[in-house]
Every structure is written in structure tokens, then in C-alpha cells.
Design a binder for these strands. Structure first.
Lengths: 196, 196
DNA sequence: CGTAATCAATAGTGGTCGCTACAGAATGAA
DNA sequence: TTCATTCTGTAGCGACCACTATTGATTACG
């Protein structure tokens, strides 16, 4: 034992996960059917279920992979940059590029894929991811306030929600067809609100 | 002739339209089924189809009624206020109240009801409404720049997109459960970006 | 080889979708 | 009344949904 007994899988599981990610990213969770997935992945439904479990389990795995590859840029900037202001500036600029990148679907999957879902479980999972991001912004801002890098009276919660709102708006406008230049101009306008 | 021949309608058409609006507003276009509507309205499917046409036609009528009752506040402020800045300040404050009003579903229906729809027609209709709102912001800002009420170098398009993004973010966060106070703090932070 | 194990393809399952044919009930007009 | 008109309720249309039972193909182990 034990060198993989039985008939080997006839498709690349990682590539299939990537294709599923693109579909969910583009159309959202419920608007992407199993038939869409099997057609795009070029496999039969039983193969998909054997490899990934049911639709919701597949989506959970897609979200995890998406987060690691496309959504961590914000958390990275928040830890790498010397100040919350520098981090937010970098995040908004990177978002303008990522949300409009023609190499993949527009906008942020965490923000758009579970809007108007009938079953609450998937919507709740992404909502918690959004709240986690919000908390990340808020704690970094609080740290800067405590360190004196931001004015003492700064409303950390309001400012964090503000940054999150700008990102949400950028995601939706990117999905509505806005280009990178427009999003960079939006980000530029948004940065003017940062406390000085 | 001609005083309404035939059996009279057994329900209030306006009340039914209101109930349909609440469902579409809460769950979105596709997640609201005909069965949901007939159950909530207390009528049979044929009655609904006779009174409103098919689902898409009903939704169009709902969107028109929604726009007149809940979305015109922005256009009103843009014409009533003496400056674009005053209008945007008022719009953000009113949005904080309207988007979180417990008397009706949260957020803005135009921004949320057609996200992730399989059929593009409905999504495109709401997208055009969003772009019309964007154009309204931009033209008001351009007028202020021309009148000298805003700095000559102001990026009207970027600033308009910025305001729209903040509203979109406020709508989504309201739907995610944020309250009026949080949204007012967000709006306050956002106003700091206005050119001075 | 024979056998156990794993995957693939066909062909469905029951359920819900938007929508409607049909027959009966309720009205005004003649 | 008798008739045309308009609405209501039942019952069901074909299409699609997520999902799976079954059968056969393909591998490793002994």
C-alpha cells in the first residue's frame, strides 16, 4: 500500500476549482447552476459531486481559495504599511486595478456573489467575511489613534465603515462597467477624506 | 356605456403593488418567486398575471413606483440645495435614515435587487438607473465648477463616482445590518472628502 | 489472472420555476 | 332573463433546479 488504487480522476481538480471560481465570481452563487459548472468544467455531475461535495461545499472551497488569492491584498497592506493612511491609500489604488482587471471577473466576489440569495447560509458566510474585513480596518485605525498617528477624536468605526463603503462602491461600479481610470479617480477623491 | 363590465377585481391593485415592492426590495428580483408573490398578496397566479402582466413587467412597474417614492430624494436635493456640496451632505444624511428605516426593507432597491440576475434585461434596466443618477451628480458638480463654487481643477466625474460609491456602500452595509448611527458616522467621514 | 477500489456516464429523482388552459363565478347591458 | 364580459380558482404545462442510483470503465493490489 498505498498508491492510489482505483480509476484515476480524469480532470485537474485545481483547474476545475478555478473555473468554478470564475463562474461564481461572474454570476453569483444562485445564478450559477450545477449544469453551468459541469458544462464549463467539461465533467459530469457525479464527478463534480465526488470531487467537491454539494454546491454549497464547493462554494465554501471557492471562497477560501478566492480569499487567499484575491482578497488578502487589503490585510497585507494593513500590516505592511507604516500607517493606516498609507495602507488605505494603497488598498484603494490596488482595488482600482484588481476590480477592473480584464484577466478575471470584475469587482469583489465576497461583496457580490451572495447578494439576493434565497438560502441565508451562503449570504451569512460572506457577510461574516465582510465584517471581519471591517474589523481589520477598525483595529488598524484604533492602533494609529493610540500611537498618535491619527487625531485623538477620530471615529475609528465610522472611518472603517467609510473605507469599506468606498470599496463596496468600487466593486459594484466595476461590475457595472467602469474602467480602471474611473476607479482610480474615485479612489483619489475618497482619499481626500482621510484625517490630517 | 361603459362602466366596468364583468366581475370586479377582488383585491386592491395599489396595495398589491406595494406588497410586491417590499418582496422585490427585500429578496431581489430572481429570489422572489411568483409563488412568493401570490402567497403574500393573497391572490391566485392568474389574477396577478391579469393585473400586472408577467414577472418582468410587474418588476418594471415596481421599480417606477419605487423610484418616485424612495429614490427621488437625491434628485430633489440636487435641485433644491444652493450648492452641490450642500446637496451631497443632505443626500448622505437622508440616505443614512432611509436605508436603515425599519418601516421598509433596508438599503436601496435599485442598487441591490438585480445583482446576480441570470437574465440580463432586468439588471440592465437598474444599471441604467444607476448611471442616470451618476450623470445627475456629475452635471450638478460641473455646474458648481463652472459657477466657481468648486475649485477649477475639480474632477467632476471622479467626484460623482465617489459620492455614488459611498451611497452604494451605505446601502450594502445597511442590508448587512448596520444601523442609522453607523451610517451617519460613515456619511460624516465621507463628507470630509468634499473639496474646500 | 482475480478482486477490490475508485471514477465516469447515463439517466433519472422529486421539487420548484414562470406561466397558462379551462371552467365557474360575478358583474353590466340588452 | 339572456348574453357578453371580466375576474377567480384549480390544476397542470414544460423547463430547469440540485442531486443521485446504477452500471460500466479503469486502475492497483495480491
Amino acid at each position: 500500500m498505498t498508491g492510489q488504487r482505483g480509476r484515476p480522476r480524469s480532470f485537474d481538480r485545481d483547474a476545475a476549482l478555478d473555473a468554478a471560481m470564475r463562474l461564481f465570481w461572474e454570476r453569483g452563487y444562485e445564478a450559477t447552476s450545477i449544469a453551468d459548472l459541469t458544462r464549463e468544467l467539461g465533467i459530469g455531475a457525479p464527478s463534480l459531486y465526488a470531487a467537491f461535495g454539494d454546491k454549497r461545499t464547493l462554494f465554501d472551497e471557492v471562497v477560501a481559495a478566492y480569499g487567499a488569492r484575491y482578497a488578502d491584498f487589503a490585510a497585507v497592506a494593513l500590516t505592511e504599511e507604516p500607517s493606516a493612511g498609507a495602507a488605505v491609500r494603497r488598498i484603494l489604488r490596488e482595488a482600482a486595478a484588481i476590480y477592473t482587471d480584464p484577466a478575471h471577473p470584475k469587482g469583489c466576489m465576497v461583496l457580490s456573489a451572495a447578494v439576493n440569495t434565497a438560502s441565508d447560509e451562503v449570504a451569512e458566510a460572506l457577510r461574516q467575511r465582510r465584517e471581519a474585513g471591517l474589523a481589520l480596518f477598525e483595529s488598524r485605525i484604533r492602533a494609529d489613534v493610540a500611537a498618535g498617528a491619527l487625531p485623538a477624536g477620530t471615529d475609528a468605526c465610522g472611518l472603517a465603515r467609510y473605507v469599506a463603503a468606498v470599496l463596496q462602491g468600487m466593486s459594484q461600479q466595476s461590475r457595472d462597467g467602469a474602467g480602471r481610470k474611473e476607479m482610480e479617480a474615485l479612489a483619489e477623491a475618497a482619499m481626500a477624506a482621510w484625517p490630517r
